[in-house]
């Protein structure tokens, strides 16, 4: 079975990508994983100028999860073009540039700089960044801003454009609809969930920034519900993200409505997880005589079945 397929205009060799901020620029792990066996790599968020990121502590472990407040530390788009694109051009998997910015102009500027490069197959937009001009609230929690960013970026590229949505809103599907209406090719669901942890002996927060983004298996059920909600609301493809550590998790996301998935936090534990998961999905489909993985997408049957209780035992 040949898995190669097209989603949102991207041709991918399988449905498993690695999520932004969990795999660097794809060139850090050659000894531990064959990146060319991945469906694709989403780069660390790129901003116009390099960003130092936040002071330590930037991470804290929580039950089956982790909090982070890296602060979008990145080398900036100029250095990315000079130092990373030549290497990324040699990869056979798709490379998607993730963009973070503190203004609409900056989003557009970064995208325009990257758009000419053939090595960049498409864009994923991190809208969970503070809007500096308007008090620092996240763009991603303002529907009109999500629509505006999508509209302005859509005018500037013909490449696949994916908007990565934050779950820190009441109805994520409304944000997906806003992105869809302005021409997004796909939505990535979900970014991290705001969380917090406290050291009870020092009475200090475990992150220097007080709160941070929760990721890992702890958020998987939430992510799955958001994917399901968005899948039913929009016609564009949904890329499922949130706590995936196994092929079984990935298949759950496909069934809930994801056309492809991204593995995030688990790359920190097992850098080759994405490859293993892609292989696992393939074997599962072969065993189940599913000729096309795409047949799993959205195939969940939303009804109660008492037999599921057996899987508790």
């Amino acid at each position: 079975m040949h898995e190669s397929f097209t989603v949102a205009g991207l041709t991918l060799q399988n449905r498993v990508l690695v999520a932004s901020g969990t795999f660097g620029y794809g060139d850090e792990v050659p000894q531990l994983v064959d990146v060319n066996k991945l469906g694709g790599i989403v780069t660390k968020s790129l901003s116009m100028k390099p960003r130092d990121g936040n002071p330590a502590p930037r991470i804290a472990e929580t039950p089956s999860g982790m909090l982070n407040s890296i602060g979008l530390a990145n080398i900036g788009v100029k250095k990315f073009i000079e130092e990373k694109i030549p290497k990324l051009s040699t990869f056979s998997c798709a490379v998607i540039a993730n963009i973070a910015a503190s203004s609409v102009e900056e989003y557009c500027g970064v995208l325009e700089k990257l758009d000419p490069f053939e090595a960049i197959a498409g864009f994923e937009i991190n809208v969970s960044c503070p809007n500096v001009k308007e008090g620092g609230l996240s763009f991603g929690t303002d529907k009109e801003k999500v629509a505006l960013i999508t509209k302005e970026l859509r005018r500037r590229t013909k490449k696949p454009l994916m908007i990565k949505l934050t779950p820190n809103v009441t109805h994520i599907s409304e944000f997906a609809l806003a992105a869809e209406s302005e021409g997004a090719d796909a939505v990535s669901v979900i970014n991290t969930i705001i969380g917090m942890a406290i050291d009870i002996r020092t009475r200090k927060t475990k992150l220097s920034t007080v709160t941070g983004g929760l990721s890992g298996p702890a958020i998987k059920p939430i992510a799955l519900a958001k994917v399901y909600e968005v899948y039913r609301a929009v016609k564009i493809p949904v890329i499922g993200i949130g706590g995936i550590t196994s092929w079984e998790d990935a298949v759950e996301f496909l069934l809930a409505g994801a056309s492809a998935v991204q593995v995030g936090t688990y790359n920190f534990v097992v850098p080759s997880a994405g490859v293993t998961i892609a292989e696992g999905i393939k074997s599962f489909c072969e065993q189940q005589s599913i000729s096309d993985v795409g047949k799993l997408v959205g195939a969940v049957e939303a009804k109660r079945d008492l037999s599921v209780i057996e899987s508790w035992l």
């Binding site: 850090e28 330590a56 930037r58 790359n267």
Partner: peptide, 11 residues
């Protein structure tokens, strides 16, 4: 977290 520079968690 990762020990290899992926997570940028240890500045």
């Amino acid at each position: 977290a990762c020990g290899i520079g992926l997570c940028q968690g240890c500045p």
